[in-house]
């Protein structure tokens, strides 16, 4: 399955970053934000003036995504870049962005210490191994937790949420409106053959 930029924009809807759910969703956002619905939307072509993830951070998130996404998924780089710029740069607060950057620094530090190279220079098999050796596979997500727990929360779960809370990732499992995605009221009524 090839992920597209459209899939990333849909994933952003699950992250509350864009109002892609129709007039009803915009009404909801208008009330929730206490004003102009447009002001709550994100223009994905607009660059943010505030603290942003670096290109290295974005590339590392994509590398982590390659390690934790199924092999049948392609188009990961563009998907992750669009998603992370849309969400982490614009929706999350500075503390969250800092958490992502610090957790990525930790991953890169472990790669350099254990394998003598930056994380991005490692082959994909070793990149996956680093996550396991950090313990991010067994750790509970915790923003204020141990190194492994913060890597799980800010890095691994960031990209897993992008995929599996979106229609593209849900469809891999047979669920086109996964929990966390505002996919409307039709899919729950449909049978498997429709």
């Amino acid at each position: 399955m090839k992920l597209t930029r459209r899939d990333a924009v849909a994933a952003l809807a699950a992250a509350g970053a864009v109002g892609t759910v129709g007039a009803g969703g915009l009404l909801a956002r208008e009330r929730l934000h206490g004003g102009d619905a447009d002001s709550a939307e994100t223009d994905e072509n607009e660059s943010s003036e505030s603290v942003t993830l670096s290109e290295t951070d974005t590339a590392m998130l994509a590398a982590v995504a390659r390690a934790v996404y199924p092999s049948e998924v392609t188009g990961i780089e563009e998907f992750v870049e669009t998603y992370s710029r849309g969400r982490i740069d614009r929706v999350r607060n500075d503390a969250y962005r800092g958490g992502v950057s610090e957790a990525l620094e930790y991953v890169d530090d472990r790669a350099r210490t254990w394998y003598g190279e930056p994380y991005l220079e490692l082959d994909s098999e070793t990149q996956a191994s680093v996550l396991g050796e950090i313990g991010a596979d067994r750790a509970d997500p915790a923003p204020d937790g141990t190194d492994a727990e913060r890597v799980r929360h800010f890095v691994v779960n960031e990209v897993l949420f992008a995929l599996y809370a979106s229609p593209a990732g849900g469809e891999l499992v047979g669920l086109e409106n996964p929990q966390g995605y505002p996919g409307g009221l039709d899919s729950y009524q449909r049978g498997p053959d429709t």
């Binding site: 390690a67 934790v68 996404y69 199924p70 092999s71 049948e72 996956a128 996550l131 596979d137 067994r138 509970d140 997500p141 691994v156 779960n157 897993l160 949420f161 995929l163 599996y164 809370a165 990732g169 849900g170 891999l172 499992v173 047979g174 669920l175 996964p178 929990q179 966390g180």
Partner: peptide
């Protein structure tokens, strides 16, 4: 199970994770 909840709390990644989700959900 909710697949996304499983993915965020599971201890597998990649193809193994997807196989776990497909096995559990449906």
């Amino acid at each position: 199970p909710s697949p996304v909840e499983m993915a965020l709390t599971g201890d597998t990644f990649g193809d193994e994770l997807l196989a776990d989700l497909r096995e559990a959900y449906g």
